[in-house]
Amino acid sequence: MATSPDSLVLHTTDNGVSWITLNRPAAMNALTWDQRERIIDLLAGASADPGVRAVVITATGKGFCAGADLRGAPSAGGERVAGDVARMIRQGAQRFIGAVLDCEKPVIAAVNGTAAGIGAHLALACDLVLAGESARFIEVFVRRGLVPDGGGAYLLPRLIGPQRAKELVFFGDAVSAAEAERLGLVNRVVPDGELAKTAREWAERLAAGPTRALALTKQLVNASLDSDRAAAFAAEATAQEINMTTADAQEGVASFVERRSPTYRGR
């Protein structure tokens, strides 16, 4: 009997936070095609829904995501020709990671166990990364004779520099949560039993913030390492122009002048 995508990726929205939970604990949440497509859709929905102001991605069981489960991918059939693999990567792993990077709401990863391969990149593409003490990050590709996909060679050097990135992808060794925090791969490590609570606290704090300002800030930071100073400054000026038309920006200024706490509504 087939398992529905809705049960493989659980979804709830609570207090302005969209909770996206991988739910294949028996398979260490190895990512199927159906799961990937559902998460892409949920992230796009979060961007478009004014009732969603932050996103948390986490998982059930002892694994965050053990990588791609290629057994769940639909088969095109026939003989493979030049270009098939590149097209599969563009439409699959790269589109998946791009959906996280391009989501207009801040996205938190709550890493509850092993994050390997595309699972590690799913976590590292998020805006903030919380890790339980038992979490591990593994660039598993070299162990299979593969090149990293899902933006690994793009994300890692920007997070920890090229030399450290090469160490991780050349050797494929497991990185503990504590070491990941030391390297700068994660924002904070917490006891496993406090991971969901901390993720909720962070997400609800973001959900109470100026949503459009956060979206524009995310875009600026993500683009900054690919821009020269002139382009970055031009993008900053444009973001400021756009943001000053929002109700939240006007509320922020008014609350400062009136010496009170602001109330942001995500508009």
Results as ranks from 00 to 15, higher is better:
Val147Asn: 05
Val147Trp: 08
Val147Tyr: 11
Pro148Ile: 12
Asp149Ala: 09
Asp149Lys: 12
Asp149Val: 15
Ala153Lys: 15
Ala153Met: 13
Tyr154Thr: 15
Leu155Gly: 02
Leu156Ile: 13
Pro157Ile: 12
Arg158Pro: 00
Leu159Pro: 00
Leu159Asp: 03
Leu159Cys: 05
Gly161Arg: 11
Gly161His: 09
Gln163Gly: 03
Gln163Ser: 14
Gln163Met: 13
Ala165Lys: 02
Ala165Trp: 01
Ala165Phe: 02
Glu167Gly: 04
Leu168Phe: 07
Val169Ile: 15
Val169Asn: 03
Phe170Ile: 10
Phe170Gln: 08
Phe170Asn: 09
Phe171Leu: 14
Phe171Tyr: 14
Gly172Lys: 10
Gly172Leu: 05
Gly172Ala: 03
Ala174Gln: 07
Ala174Phe: 04
Val175His: 06
Ser176Glu: 05
Ser176Gly: 10
Ser176Met: 07
Ala177Cys: 05
Ala177Lys: 08
Ala177Phe: 09
Ala177Glu: 05
Ala177Ser: 13
Ala178Ile: 13
Ala178Trp: 08
Ala180Gly: 14
Arg182Lys: 15
Leu183Tyr: 14
Gly184Glu: 03
Gly184Pro: 01
Leu185Gln: 02
Val186Leu: 02
Asn187Leu: 12
Asn187Ala: 12
Asn187Gly: 15
Arg188Asn: 03
Arg188Pro: 00
Val189Thr: 09
Pro191Val: 11
Pro191Lys: 07
Pro191Ser: 06
Pro191Leu: 06
Asp192Arg: 08
Gly193Pro: 00
Gly193Trp: 04
Gly193Lys: 07
Gly193Ala: 11
Leu195His: 01
Leu195Trp: 02
Ala196Leu: 09
Ala196Ser: 09
Lys197Thr: 13
Lys197Val: 11
Thr198Gln: 10
Thr198Gly: 00
Ala199Gly: 01
Ala199Glu: 02
Ala199Cys: 06
Arg200Val: 05
Glu201Asn: 04
Glu201Asp: 10
Trp202Leu: 09
Trp202Glu: 01
Trp202Pro: 00
Ala203Asn: 01
Ala203Phe: 01
Leu206Gly: 00
Leu206Gln: 01
Ala207Cys: 05
Ala208Ile: 11
Gly209Ile: 07
Gly209His: 06
Gly209Thr: 08
Gly209Pro: 01
Pro210Tyr: 09
Pro210Ile: 11
Pro210Glu: 08
Pro210Asn: 08
Pro210Arg: 09
Pro210Gln: 06
Thr211Ile: 08
Thr211Gly: 01
Thr211Ala: 14
Thr211Ser: 13
Arg212His: 09
Ala213Asp: 07
Ala213Gly: 13
